[in-house]
């Protein structure tokens, strides 16, 4: 039974190392702080968006670049059940603005001394359990609507994914320059 409970030690070690680095970066970035997240939603501090968009730019160009170079790198695209993505996204945004953390930053925030992130994480476990109970109802309603499948914008636009990743990077870098120019200076 215990053998079923755990993945291989190598897999666990790689996951642990990834978590260690990810948590370290989130704290150095300031997004383990409630005020930074909430002021993002109040449009006063754009740290969170700057981190997300620069991760998307660097990650996207690199991963599609590796694939374009012929390396065997698999994608992990999630299903586009658009109504589920929208309703889920709205609930997520409401909850995140109240808690002041997303799941990853909330867990990291406990390590950064945010005691109130602990009831937040307990609430996340509760929310997951509730979802598991009502999953059949979701599956027959919201999740039964149009499902576009595991598609990317490269698929829907019919363009090469690496070219699109470069194009998206240019647009997002432009957006980040505009943010620096026009957005309020962050508190950091």
């Amino acid at each position: 039974m215990l053998a079923d409970l755990f993945a291989s030690p190598g897999t666990l070690a790689l996951g642990a190392l990834t978590g260690l680095v990810f948590g370290f970066l989130l704290q150095k970035g300031g997004v383990t702080r409630f005020d930074v997240i909430v002021r993002q939603f109040l449009l006063q501090d754009f740290t969170m968006l700057k981190i997300m968009l620069s991760a998307v730019v660097v990650g996207g160009v690199g991963i599609y670049g590796m694939r374009a170079a012929g390396l065997d790198v698999g994608l992990h695209v999630k299903d586009a059940v658009l109504l589920g993505n929208v309703v889920g996204g709205v609930l997520f945004g409401i909850g995140m603005a109240v808690l002041g953390y997303c799941p990853g930053t909330g867990i990291a925030a406990i390590g950064d001394g945010s005691r109130h992130a602990i009831p937040g994480v307990l609430g996340m476990l509760f929310g997951a359990a509730v979802y598991a109970e009502v999953y059949p109802a979701m599956k027959s309603s919201i999740l039964a609507t149009a499902d576009l499948g595991k598609v990317t914008f490269a698929d829907t636009l019919g363009v090469g994914p690496f070219a699109l990743a470069i194009g998206a990077a240019v647009v997002l870098i432009g957006a980040l320059f505009a943010l620096e120019r026009f957005a309020p200076k962050s508190a950091a």
């Binding site: 990810f22 997300m52 991760a55 998307v56 730019v57 990650g59 996207g60 991963i63 994608l75 992990h76 695209v77 999630k78 299903d79 059940v81 589920g84 993505n85 309703v87 889920g88 996204g89 709205v90 609930l91 997520f92 945004g93 409401i94 909850g95 995140m96 603005a97 109240v98 808690l99 002041g100 953390y101 997303c102 799941p103 990853g104 930053t105 909330g106 009831p119 937040g120 994480v121 307990l122 609430g123 996340m124 476990l125 509760f126 929310g127 997951a128 509730v130 979802y131 979701m138 919201i142 999740l143 990317t152 914008f153 490269a154 994914p161 699109l164 990743a165 998206a168």
Partner: peptide, 27 residues
């Protein structure tokens, strides 16, 4: 807040890391 957020994440199929970063970078 945590409960509502996680419920939303499961309905949407991911959170700020799974959708926001990993999904975002895959476009």
């Amino acid at each position: 807040g945590g409960a509502v957020m996680l419920f939303g994440a499961r309905l949407a199929g991911g959170c700020t890391s799974g959708h926001g970063i990993s999904g975002g970078l895959q476009l």
